[in-house]
């Protein structure tokens, strides 16, 4: 097994506070929310597990005087099996359970093939969301962006669609890598983006009704 200190990127002389800080930074970095539909979710979860274990081990080792219980151990909220079981067909009554299953198994080609069989008039928001997810894991990011924004426009209240759309918008802004074209500070930028997302949603609602 790897040295837990190495995993967290700290020296064995680090203080408890430093360990906690390093752990938090890494947990943020590999958080499932960030990796989501990218197709690397399981790899990130693996890394997350490693970090959690390393952190727990260090803390156990250091438990000399006062036993230390980490207050914020991340548990992976991204449990695909649950999503599958709790799935209910949406208002239009179309059943996409097969598609979710295929995506979870990583069989994107088959999932895309089935989705493409839907006639253009029957394509609902969820259809666009699923196509967006598939394109996103395939690395076809422009199509993913188009699908996600269409899904969001068709049903603006759905959290799942909005989450994907917002993640894409944030990536496009350049704060996750690349170049931020507006010359404001990072904090301002975040506000600016959320503002843009809000206005965008409003605009879309307006055009729908």
């Amino acid at each position: 097994m790897k040295d837990p200190y190495k995993i967290l990127g700290i020296t064995p002389h680090a203080t408890d506070e430093e360990i906690k800080q390093a752990y938090r930074a890494l947990a943020k970095k590999y958080h499932p929310d960030r990796y989501g539909e990218s197709g690397l979710a399981s790899q990130a979860a693996e890394k997350m597990k490693e970090i959690n274990e390393a952190y727990d081990r260090i803390m156990k080792q250091r438990k000399e005087g006062i036993p230390y219980i980490p207050e914020d151990t991340y548990t992976c909220p991204y449990n695909n099996e649950d999503e599958y079981n709790s799935y209910q067909s949406n208002s239009t009554g179309r059943d996409y359970r097969v598609i979710y299953r295929l995506i979870n198994l990583g069989n994107l080609i088959e999932a895309e093939h089935i989705l493409n069989g839907t006639s253009p008039t029957e394509r609902d928001a969820e259809w666009y969301y699923l196509m967006g997810t598939i394109s996103y894991s395939k690395g076809w990011l422009e199509e993913a962006f188009n699908y996600a924004s269409t899904a969001c426009r068709m049903s603006p209240d759905d959290d799942k669609y909005k989450a994907l759309y917002e993640r894409i918008i944030q990536q496009r802004s350049g704060t996750q890598g690349g170049f931020v074209s507006t010359r404001s500070g990072a904090a301002d930028c975040c506000d600016c983006i959320s503002c843009l997302i809000c206005t965008d949603c409003l605009c879309n609602c307006g055009s729908c009704s």
Binding site: S38, L40, R172, S173, Q176, G177, G178, F179
Partner: peptide, 21 residues
């Protein structure tokens, strides 16, 4: 160019996510 930058940004974000693993 503004649009190109957005497209590049999104690709860079994905690239960084994989790089960190």
């Amino acid at each position: 160019m503004q649009y190109c930058n957005e497209v590049l940004n999104m690709t860079a974000a994905q690239l960084i996510m994989a790089y960190e693993l």
